[in-house]
Write a protein that binds this DNA or RNA. Sequence first.
DNA 1: GACCGAACATAACCTATGTTATGTCGCAGT
DNA 2: ACTGCGACATAACATAGGTTATGTTCGGTC
Lengths: 253, 253
Amino acid sequence: MTDSCIIRHFEHYAELGQDDRELLDSLEKTPKDFSKGQLIWQQGMESDHFYTVRSGWACSFRNMEDGSRQVQDLYVPGDIVGLREFAFRRRVSNLLTVTNTTLCPFPKNRLTDVFSTSRLLCNLFFLIAARDQAILVERLINLGRRTAREKVAHFLLEMAHRLDKACMDVHDCNHLPLTQVLLADALGMSTVHANRTLNELKQESLTALGPDGITLLDRDGLKDVAGFDPEYLDADVEGLLKNIGAPASSQPA
Amino acid sequence: MTDSCIIRHFEHYAELGQDDRELLDSLEKTPKDFSKGQLIWQQGMESDHFYTVRSGWACSFRNMEDGSRQVQDLYVPGDIVGLREFAFRRRVSNLLTVTNTTLCPFPKNRLTDVFSTSRLLCNLFFLIAARDQAILVERLINLGRRTAREKVAHFLLEMAHRLDKACMDVHDCNHLPLTQVLLADALGMSTVHANRTLNELKQESLTALGPDGITLLDRDGLKDVAGFDPEYLDADVEGLLKNIGAPASSQPA
DNA sequence: GACCGAACATAACCTATGTTATGTCGCAGT
DNA sequence: ACTGCGACATAACATAGGTTATGTTCGGTC
């Protein structure tokens, strides 16, 4: 298997031709290591690259005037970070590493070349953007219409499910390297209440808390709490491939 | 000017070549009229088309188990509805008209043809998807980290700003045909509280309430309340066009 | 091995917002 | 003209979740 992040990423979905691989390979830059808690970009900076996550976790967020923070999304191995900023010259949010992380940079304005050169990759990029939207919508629903308990359970399940699918070098998909502060900021609640809720779930043996994050003990139980349905995470790659007449990946999706 | 919704939509951004126009024209179907309060599609239905809004308003939403509703987004003239579903075989949300509406259907799986045929359109579609994401993220922040007052003010400003940009046959961009129920469902709050908040803003002469919707009276005042910054709505079309070497639209963006 | 700062825990108290209930108004249909 | 319904208004009351405060634990560092 290739060493390139982004090739690896796409081969997860579909079998790439030699052309596609070469194209991607020529554009991707060498991976960069970031340590935990490092600010990778800041609102207002020029948005010239996006990244593929090779290992580790990152999050995008925005600082509010009152000093609080809203985390917009978390990124796990295999995710593409910063596609959103395709439409903007400057970054509209901050990006921070959650753990030690390796990212592969890709120049934003070369995306255009990819679009015109590879029908397959163009469509896959679009599919990914659509799935990203679906994730945002689901979080919207989480924030708007669920209780703290439901929010937390739902969010944990989503991240675990995304880890499952990432299927990269992740060992234990039930373990999430999240601090309670981060969780609270992602779910629009206070740290104190995040703690309360998490401990509640712990009492019920649904989760476990360690110094290095949160562990899911009982996914079915959590599912009952949250009403979680992973449908929105499962993009219809096969349908797309069939539509554009491309061979599917040999790997299971 | 053309009669096609989608051509009109894109010409708003950039000058289309004759090829592009013909391509779009061949794919778009004849406009369809819907009356106020009509359910256009439902969760679970096959997602075979997306729509361009020619006139009127629509909203996408999801019904929750407890009977409540979360509105995901509103669509105004010029918007494209349903691009999100590109990644999914079935619709992941419901679509409802807010007013009488005219929509132009476009078969989803022909998008692929557009991508491979027109470099310009492909990039514009991607830009639109990215802007849609930015809108969702901003709503996320709204729900997560703002008070009811701020939420309402921010949301009203966003919609007004989007109307400004739509620049289609909209007469008064300060008038939004929203019911209080809809507003509440979009902002994840109760109708009662939406009413309270709206009346508060009305006391301060920031908005006016009529039987047919909400009117913005003092955008600057609302801006002060909400801390609204329209940056996330203003996609960098020029940068994109320059990057792909296409001529800009003669019309002001 | 003393010090420091994250992250976590817990309690007491407070408030923004939800809930329930009831009433008015205007308008569409009969 | 009567009825019914949907949108809006408002008041009384309930509560989920925020805020403030204080303490513990633990890993890093000089």
